[in-house]
Amino acid sequence: MPIDATQPYEPNNIFAKILRGEIPNKTVYEDEFALAFHDINPQAPHHILVIPKGAYVSWDDFSARAPDAEIAGFIRAVGHVAREAGLVAPGYRLLANVGQHGGQEVPHLHVHLFAGQPLGPMLAR
């Protein structure tokens, strides 16, 4: 069920539990700012999630509250993951859902990296 991205951070969301080590994951990359791991329900041949280590509900929350170093570190981590996974050529989709209308289901900022096949149009026509 989509969430309201304006609500306060929920510290027991699934990604917070993954960051605390309470739920296992298949880690692809980790540094001081981000954790990247394979999605447990992949929607493409390659489906990696990248989450910041800070407690941010959405892209809006992150861009408003995170320190500059954390924002830069997270964005660099996303690029690093895409390059190291070999997704840059022939290409990939980067997606961040925000709020109810955007289809956000977990109240912790996360971006999806989809690749491995032609992905088609962004929205159903």
Rank of each mutant, 00 (worst) to 15 (best):
I3P: 01
I3R: 01
D4Y: 06
A5I: 08
T6E: 08
P8Q: 12
E10R: 10
N12S: 14
N13K: 08
N13C: 11
I14E: 14
I14P: 14
F15W: 08
A16S: 15
K17N: 05
I18T: 08
L19W: 07
G21F: 11
G21E: 14
E22C: 06
E22F: 06
I23L: 15
I23F: 13
N25S: 15
K26Y: 09
V28Q: 04
V28G: 01
Y29A: 07
E30N: 03
D31R: 05
D31T: 09
F33R: 01
A34R: 01
L35A: 01
A36N: 03
F37I: 07
H38I: 11
I40M: 11
N41F: 13
P42D: 14
A44V: 06
P45C: 11
H47R: 05
H47Q: 09
L49R: 03
I51N: 04
I51W: 03
P52A: 02
K53H: 10
K53D: 07
S58P: 00
W59R: 11
W59L: 15
D61M: 10
F62L: 03
F62S: 01
S63G: 13
A64E: 12
P67I: 04
D68M: 13
D68L: 15
E70Q: 09
I71F: 12
I71Y: 07
A72W: 07
G73I: 04
G73R: 10
G73E: 03
I75P: 02
R76Y: 11
R76I: 12
A77W: 00
G79H: 06
G79V: 02
G79Q: 08
H80K: 13
H80T: 06
H80W: 07
H80P: 02
V81F: 00
R83P: 08
E84K: 15
G86K: 09
L87K: 00
L87R: 00
L87P: 01
V88H: 05
P90M: 12
R93I: 05
L94V: 12
L94A: 13
L95S: 04
A96G: 10
G99I: 03
Q100S: 15
H101V: 11
H101N: 14
V106D: 04
V106P: 03
P107C: 11
H110I: 09
V111M: 10
V111I: 11
V111C: 11
H112C: 05
H112K: 07
L113G: 01
L113A: 02
F114T: 05
F114Y: 12
Q117F: 10
M122H: 13
L123V: 07
L123C: 10
A124Q: 14
R125I: 14
R125G: 15
